[in-house]
């Protein structure tokens, strides 16, 4: 990258600003917005499980839907109710609507999806349909 020093001689901070702008563009944290919720995906021949940490989310506010091989998880994190005149010292937690989609390795049947929420951790287990399960092929002797 080239930084012409002769332009805008009157403004000594112009160069610094343009460098900072370039730096901002490249640093990875600026490329993507943080994604919520973070998910872990577990797999076996029989099923796929998705776990997500959703602290402070009421299970009634979570929507899970499966369409063909895409599982969508959406909902809302509600801001805590605070009495009038309260003063915030720290606000590190996030609030608002969220949605995430996970592509499954097979087309899931609705009746094979099971979700459970314990202590703010959501666990969705999607069973693999019988016809999709890997089959062992026997080799016949000639």
């Amino acid at each position: 990258m080239l930084y012409p020093t002769y332009t805008r001689r009157s403004d000594p901070f112009a160069l610094m600003r343009s460098m900072l702008r370039d730096f901002d563009r490249v640093s990875p944290s600026r490329l993507a917005q943080p994604v919520f919720p973070a998910v872990n995906v577990w797999q076996s021949d029989e099923a796929v499980a998705i776990t997500a940490e959703l602290p402070g989310v009421d299970p009634a506010d979570i929507d899970i839907s499966v369409k063909e091989n895409v599982l969508t998880l959406s909902g809302e994190r509600k801001a805590p109710e605070v009495p009038e005149g309260a003063r915030w010292h720290r606000n590190e937690r996030g609030f608002g609507r969220f949605a995430r989609s996970v592509r499954l390795p097979f087309v899931a049947a609705d009746d094979k999806v099971e979700a459970r929420m314990t202590n703010g951790v959501l666990r969705i287990v999607v069973g693999r349909p019988e016809e999709d399960k890997p089959r062992k092929i026997e080799i016949k002797a000639a």
Partner: peptide, 17 residues
């Protein structure tokens, strides 16, 4: 999250699991 109210402090900590 830390909130100060008239009668004290309220802390809300995210501890899933």
């Amino acid at each position: 999250d830390i909130v100060e109210t008239a009668d004290g402090m309220t802390l809300m900590l995210e501890m899933p699991g």
